[in-house]
Amino acid sequence: MAASAATHKERQFLAVIGDEDSVTGLLLAGIGHVTDGPDAQRNFLVVDSKTETSEIERAFQSFTQDRKDIAVVLINQHVAERIRHSVDAFAEPFPAVLEIPSKDHPYDPEKDSVLKRVRRLFGE
């Protein structure tokens, strides 16, 4: 635990992958962050019907694996559906991956990877 305590002190940002409305709202709350330097990285990705699944995948990998400054990844549930295997396969405690509802897609607890685990644990 001691080793990881040092690493997640660095984690102070939230990241979001979602549709335009969700991203706009969350950015308004002030979570948006763009890193300095020439390879500026944003901590958000807007997904619409034209966005390639591979791009979502890449963003998800980048937020969860490569970047060490992200504490929580928020992802719209319907977007998570598109890369379900990656989301389900990701079991690290950091960063926390949170599936959030979007305006057009109300929240469905059945699909949530964490809630699925909860239900499995209690044999429901």
Partner: peptide, 19 residues
């Protein structure tokens, strides 16, 4: 639509977390 403008004006996170 303000979405685009919001996305572009985001620079520094105002809302952060600590563990």
């Amino acid at each position: 639509d303000i979405g685009y403008q919001i996305q572009e004006s985001a620079k520094q996170a105002r809302f952060r977390v600590r563990a």
